[in-house]
């Protein structure tokens, strides 16, 4: 039996070894760089904590991630509810529309938003043609544009866990509450909504964690004016070759992400939320 066990490990080992050597080890190295370059010590962390630009970047990151999460959970909830409970015949179409963005790359989706929201973008042109505005509105290169495009990118990640959760809820409870005289809204609020809290939690966690480290959409829609931490790190390294500060901020971002997961783990079954999702 022991030799069987060794053979099973032999199957699992190549992937684990590749992951440890080429992924985990380089990440550990980032931590090492942050305390050795340019000089050994925690100077980079001190510099980061004292820098106004760095703290602003972290505040922007958490604010954008939080706003994105709130909008995604609300919109995702409505959409998942419609799929699970109210739409019947057109359900496959609705699911297909929700999943469509998953098939299209984030880069293309961000490009679409640039085409829509730019200074001479489609929205501004249309509004000017109709005569609503005279000068183009600033719809991107600000937090509005970044959050709008990020909600679009992250929304499917909110819908799927909510839908999985709602599919497991028996209508019998809400029906019983209605039969006992509760109004439809009361039955929803007191009976249905509490049963969907695990789904809300998973959706919020997934969207928030992915938003914290998001780079592509904020970089393209923010136009350098909404510097989230990921973009700030890239600036430090590509423009100033400041690897010390860049890797210290990377470690900080990684720790922030881990903290969010640990806190979420107190309220949520992380194994269900992350490991078993399909």
């Amino acid at each position: 039996m022991t030799s069987d066990k060794a053979r099973y490990w032999l199957l699992a080992l190549p992937a684990l070894a590749v992951m440890a050597i080429f992924y985990i080890w380089p990440l550990v190295n980032i931590w090492a760089i942050s305390v050795t370059e340019p000089v050994p010590g925690f100077g980079n962390y001190v510099q980061g904590a004292e820098s106004q630009a760095v703290t602003t970047s972290f505040v922007i990151t958490f604010r954008v991630a939080a706003l994105t999460t709130v909008f995604c959970v609300i919109l995702g909830y409505i959409c998942a509810y419609a799929i699970a409970n109210t739409i019947r015949r057109a359900k496959p179409l609705l699911i297909a529309l929700v999943l469509l963005p998953f098939w299209v790359s984030v880069l293309i989706r961000s490009f679409s938003w640039i085409v829509l929201l730019g200074r001479s973008g489609i929205v501004n042109d249309a509004l000017r043609d109709v005569g609503v505005i005279e000068r183009p509105l600033r719809l991107m290169h600000n937090e509005f544009g970044v959050v709008l495009a990020m909600v679009h990118v992250m929304l499917p990640f909110a819908v799927l866990p909510l839908l999985a959760n709602m599919r497991g809820i028996s209508p019998a409870y809400t029906d019983a509450a209605r039969g006992l005289g509760a109004s439809e809204l009361t039955a929803f609020r007191l009976v249905y909504l509490p049963q969907t809290l695990p789904g809300i939690g998973s959706a919020a966690l997934l969207v928030f964690v992915l938003s914290l480290g998001f780079y592509i959409t904020p970089a393209l829609l923010g136009g350098g004016r909404v510097l989230m931490v990921s973009e700030y790190i890239t600036y430090q390294i590509q423009e100033f070759l400041n690897w010390g500060l860049g890797s210290a901020l990377s470690v900080a971002l990684l720790v922030a992400t881990a903290l969010v997961l640990v806190i979420a783990g107190r309220f949520l079954n992380l194994k269900n939320a992350l490991l078993e999702r399909s």
Partner: peptide
């Protein structure tokens, strides 16, 4: 042990893309 191994393998989903890319670059 198997559950821990499964967690190790999904780490790339959770690590911010820029952070892992710095790691790739140096290595």
């Amino acid at each position: 042990a198997a559950t821990i191994a499964r967690w190790v393998l999904i780490v790339p989903i959770l690590v911010p893309p820029v952070v892992q890319s710095l790691g790739f670059y140096r290595f």
